[in-house]
Design a protein around this nucleic acid. Structure first.
Lengths: 238, 238
DNA sequence: ATAATCTGACACGCCACTGTGCCAGACTTT
DNA sequence: AAAGTCTGGCACAGTGGCGTGTCAGATTAT
């Protein structure tokens, strides 16, 4: 069960959200153009728009990013935008999904080698988290600041999407607990709170121009996880 | 030192941000109208606009709230809006300041009677936090979701404004520590993280319609604080 | 009473963005 | 070569909010 979730997060078997692309259903044409099939071209354009949108939103904010600007940044015209996305918010959501997947994958990859050693697991995970943010400031700003206020997205994220990540954290720690620890509800709240702590630190870090050294952030969060481990009575921690 | 900050937060000696109100400098008039002085009327209008803005932003989001709508909600005309605020964002910032002050005060008032007993202090503070959110959904949504993406505000908040609250938390815990505990930098990071954990839980709580019972949230956060206390070696905790 | 101010309502020009339509030229198939 | 499709650029009307201006009626001081 736990392995399935982990595998899913690592392998990116997401549904390749391409729903908005209306297949252009040409009748007697194979759709080849410039040596590429129609679907390939569509996908490439979508990718370029997504990258351009992420860059602009991350840099100037969602409110200040118009569809025209995104198209200019991607060197494409509005026609292709509406071919790939329902509207501005749809692009934001897609960009969120992609960046978030990348973020989680970075953490997973860093943590995967240390599944046996809880201490190393925590530290590597934290370093990967803050490291990713520093290396992807635009994406980080998008998923940690800009996407927060989007109604439809935020409900989903906090309600459902999140659950797999929380389940993963709970799944990681539960085997280490003596008598099963507190109830699942409390455990899940603690996991969410831990994620929130990291995200909040990242928000402040981003908003103040990454001035604080990464080490301080990692150290602080490590001590909080350490405290949680003690509180929960994780085997072989104290 | 600590007392000064606490007192400041409790007593609301804030600068009564009224900078935007241009005194109308009538020459030969006392400014009485409808039995009230000019400045009183101005303040009342500002208050009504602020309340209307908070309500609308909290309910429909900042992006969906126009100046016209705010004026309609407040039963005032645009003229008065621009008399009181520079623009839409200025109102949001003012609303944020006010709501946040109210939030912090609620926590302080609940925690104040238990300054000696760390356990009670934590629990009462947490109950007050989540309680305030549940009782002020519009204000909570504004300060926890809508205001996050506003550039000017967010930099200030995370960079400076925040520091007094963090200092307060650090000041609360430091006397309880044995050998001074970790460095101040780490301590501050931990305090910020704790605040972030609470805010994140609130965000999720708001976004999913307050479905989860308050008790679960309080319990989970209490255990995290408990872990931090153990980790830091707070006197008389374990 | 008269002049001066304040109030609330409306109207206007302005601007930026949206979403769609059109078209000439590049490219591919038959 | 001819017919058909794809591309990218532009133009257009429509929309909605913004910020300012005007003005009659209410209220107050002289």
């Amino acid at each position: 069960m736990l392995c399935q979730i982990l595998w899913g997060l690592l392998m990116d078997d997401s549904p390749k959200t391409q729903s908005a692309g209306r297949s252009s259903a040409g009748r007697r044409r194979s759709g080849q153009y410039a040596g590429k099939s129609a679907s390939t071209r569509e996908r490439e354009r979508r990718t370029r728009l997504l990258a351009a949108g992420t860059r602009l939103i991350g840099r100037h904010g969602f409110a200040a990013t118009s569809i025209d600007a995104i198209c200019a940044e991607a060197s494409l015209t509005k026609r292709y935008f509406y071919q790939a996305f329902e509207g501005r918010e749809a692009l934001l959501i897609a960009a969120y999904e992609e960046a978030n997947r990348d973020f989680v994958q970075a953490i997973m990859q860093a943590a995967a080698p240390h599944l046996e050693d809880a201490r190393k697991l925590v530290r590597s995970g934290l370093q990967a988290s803050f490291g990713w943010v520093a290396q992807h400031p635009d994406e980080a700003r998008l998923i940690m600041l800009e996407a927060i206020a989007v109604r439809g997205l935020i409900g989903q994220v906090y309600g459902e999407r999140y659950d797999e990540f929380v389940s993963l954290l709970v799944g990681f720690t539960k085997p280490f607990l003596k008598d099963g620890g507190p109830g699942d509800a409390t455990l899940r709240v603690m996991a969410k709170a831990a994620v929130g702590a990291i995200m909040h630190l990242c928000q402040g870090w981003i908003a103040t121009g990454f001035r604080q050294p990464t080490e301080q952030l990692v150290d602080g969060m490590e001590r909080i996880f350490s405290g949680m481990a003690q509180e929960l009575g994780v085997r072989g921690w104290a």
